[in-house]
Design a protein around this nucleic acid. Structure first.
Ligand SMILES: [Zn+2]
Ligand SMILES: [Zn+2]
Ligand SMILES: [Zn+2]
Ligand SMILES: [Zn+2]
Lengths: 154, 154
DNA sequence: CAAATTATGATATATCATATCATTTCAATA
DNA sequence: TATTGAAATGATATGATATATCATAATTTG
């Protein structure tokens, strides 16, 4: 969860949605901004609370889930299955198309680093599943451990 | 979720618990047996239902969660974070010590294959995270896709 | 046996997620 | 610009997953 230039990212998000012919409404934007400003992954209910703080408007959790679905479909947000929380994509402002994400999740401070799955790893994965006659869908990986800071503290 | 010889597996589970000085009570055994006989991962609530069918005794879900915790601590059961379900370890009866598990989850029929993470993959993973100054805990992997059978059907 | 420890039960509540139908907003186009 | 159809959002209910806490039962240990 490195620092990001929110404005730049939002501009790129808008561009991307225009390109794909989908609508980044103002509520959807607020949800994305909330996640961009968060220091760690947030649950849908936490996002609803942050939305209220930010806009002073109430938002039904049902709507938050729908907007998260929209944002996920457009690769602007990811869901971490291992803790049922959501995180803004770290690569919105990058020029390259979005790769399969890999998340390094710190079990101490909860911060998450999103990196692209590297070639070596993809290759090893494919080898591994090939032996098992399995056809991979989308190998999002969630790896738990300690971030650099938390390693030093312990 | 290949067929297993339940009796043999249960014997080995008992041996393993004795060795580690922990108690595989009759209720914990029933929970494990339920999972061994299941054809796919089950939620804690489903396990409670199956327990009732099997034993004709009621069991509080709270107890199921506790027993699952016990079984997980002793590597007899795993939790799949990506769907909040539980599965019996496929390697209970193997002689080798338990490795980091990797799960191939079929998104069509829900069956799960548990394999050991292979050397190549471990190596690639380590490379990948090394570049990010991250210290991996236990890299349980959950890979989604299609099993052999479901590939043919589609 | 008594005491200590561990396992289980009972109850309540927190947390995460979806189903469904109503209303509003927005864009296309007649 | 008025009509209308589609997409987005709201409102409400409910289902599914998980934990907290205190009470009771079973087991081990001295
Ligand atoms: Zn991403
Ligand atoms: Zn950390
Ligand atoms: Zn296992
Ligand atoms: Zn299948």
């Amino acid at each position: 969860m490195a620092k990001v230039d929110t404005n730049k990212v939002m501009q790129q998000a808008e561009r991307s949605c225009v390109e794909h012919g989908v609508r980044l409404t103002s509520k959807r934007k607020h949800i994305l901004e909330v996640l961009l400003n968060a220091q760690a992954p947030r649950s849908a209910y936490e996002i609803a609370d942050l939305y209220r703080q930010k806009t002073e408007e109430n938002i039904p959790v049902m709507s938050v889930y729908r907007m998260l679905d929209f944002l996920m479909q457009n690769s602007l947000v990811h869901k971490l299955a291992s803790n049922n929380k959501f995180i803004a994509c770290a690569h919105i402002a990058c020029s390259h198309s979005h790769q399969t994400p890999q998340f390094l999740i710190c079990d101490n401070c909860q911060q998450v680093r999103e990196i692209g799955v590297d070639k070596q790893l993809i290759h090893a994965l494919e080898e591994s599943i090939e032996h098992n006659h399995f056809q991979l869908n989308s190998p999002q990986l969630e790896l738990h451990g300690l971030c650099e800071t938390c390693q030093q503290d312990s």
